[in-house]
Computed example of a mutant assay.
Amino acid sequence: MNRQLPPTAPSPAWSQSRTAIVTGGGSGIGLAIARRLAAEGAAVAVLDRDAAAAKAAADGITAAGGHALGLTADVAERASIDDAVAQVRERLGRPTILVTSAGLDGFDRFLTIAPSTWDRILAVNLTGTFHCCQAVVPDMVEQKWGRIVTISSSSAQTGNPLMTHYSAAKAGVVGFTKALALELGPEGITVNTIPPGFVDTPMLRRSETRGFLGKGVGQHESTTPVRRVGLPEDIAAACAYLVREEAGYITGQVIAVNGGRTT
């Protein structure tokens, strides 16, 4: 059977305009992803709980020649997500790319984790991913094309002391991604997850300041096979490939970006 293959040297831009939603896009990994997708031709909606950060991110993308919209949204609140997605449809068009980068970490000894803390960590990291996907997938089904990239964590693969709640939530994201990929594949929608390793973000630096990284970031650089800490742009590069047209045969996969720390 003859099948048409994608071009061997595809353009980084899509053949038609795409609208992307990036949650947690106001800083760190989410911001790098939003900037990268905009640079590759997508109209990007930057969603973040921090209204000022969402606006600053969108303004920066626009100043660089891209097309972006900053919106305030809490992924743990379904009404907030539904409202934001409605605004995206009205102002940018139907979204067919979704990157769920919003996240919340926590460092607590297991026996001291309050049920409310457990619920909040899962609400943001796992239930928030569910909310975002369920709000956007109908647009992808209608277009018979979609790309979803969830941002999980290497903690889901290895576990981390003092992070049973966070590791559990991110492991849930991995399982969710795999199941959703199987269900949505026939609709022309791919679903993959990137579990970042040791990446230099504001969240990481806060952990360092609180004394949760031993002797600090430098210590972990020396134990990373590529001998450097990851950058948000490293995650953005992998994400940019997964949402392209030619990545349509990749789904349900865990694409680890961690400098070799977890193989």
Score class of each variant (00 low, 15 high):
residue 162 L to P: 06
residue 196 P to W: 00
residue 101 S to C: 15
residue 84 A to P: 00
residue 125 N to V: 01
residue 201 T to N: 01
residue 180 L to E: 08
residue 205 R to Q: 10
residue 157 Q to G: 02
residue 180 L to Y: 04
residue 112 T to F: 14
residue 146 G to M: 01
residue 90 E to S: 15
residue 30 G to H: 07
residue 36 R to F: 04
residue 226 V to M: 14
residue 246 E to M: 12
residue 184 L to V: 11
residue 33 I to R: 05
residue 248 G to R: 10
residue 238 A to F: 13
residue 157 Q to C: 02
residue 36 R to V: 00
residue 233 E to T: 15
residue 80 S to A: 05
residue 159 G to D: 01
residue 39 A to K: 11
residue 205 R to C: 02
residue 39 A to E: 14
residue 235 I to N: 04
residue 253 Q to C: 11
residue 51 A to I: 07
residue 85 V to C: 07
residue 39 A to H: 10
residue 112 T to M: 10
residue 37 L to R: 05
residue 240 A to Y: 04
residue 142 E to W: 07
residue 208 E to P: 01
residue 259 G to E: 01
residue 2 N to M: 08
residue 82 D to I: 03
residue 178 K to E: 13
residue 229 V to R: 07
residue 185 G to V: 12
residue 73 A to M: 06
residue 171 A to E: 01
residue 39 A to L: 13
residue 150 T to V: 05
residue 159 G to Y: 13
residue 198 F to P: 02
residue 213 L to T: 05
residue 231 L to Y: 01
residue 60 G to C: 03
residue 1 M to W: 07
residue 197 G to D: 01
residue 102 A to D: 00
residue 245 E to D: 15
residue 85 V to Q: 01
residue 238 A to E: 03
residue 56 A to M: 05
residue 22 V to C: 03
residue 104 L to N: 07
residue 235 I to Q: 06
residue 151 I to R: 00
residue 219 Q to V: 10
residue 60 G to W: 05
residue 83 D to R: 12
residue 114 A to N: 14
residue 62 T to S: 12
residue 12 P to M: 04
residue 14 W to L: 09
residue 69 L to W: 02
residue 124 V to G: 04
residue 210 R to N: 13
residue 104 L to C: 01
residue 45 A to F: 08
residue 192 N to Y: 05
residue 107 F to L: 13
residue 105 D to V: 15
residue 40 E to Q: 13
residue 158 T to W: 12
residue 67 H to I: 09
residue 26 G to I: 05
residue 21 I to C: 02
residue 73 A to S: 13
residue 159 G to V: 11
residue 168 A to R: 04
residue 241 Y to R: 14
residue 138 P to W: 11
residue 145 W to E: 09
residue 153 S to K: 06
residue 98 L to T: 08
residue 179 A to Q: 09
residue 156 A to F: 06
residue 208 E to C: 03
residue 56 A to V: 07
residue 22 V to N: 04
residue 132 C to Q: 06
residue 76 A to R: 06
residue 173 V to F: 00
residue 224 T to Q: 03
residue 193 T to C: 14
residue 101 S to P: 05
residue 66 G to C: 11
residue 188 G to W: 10
residue 248 G to K: 03
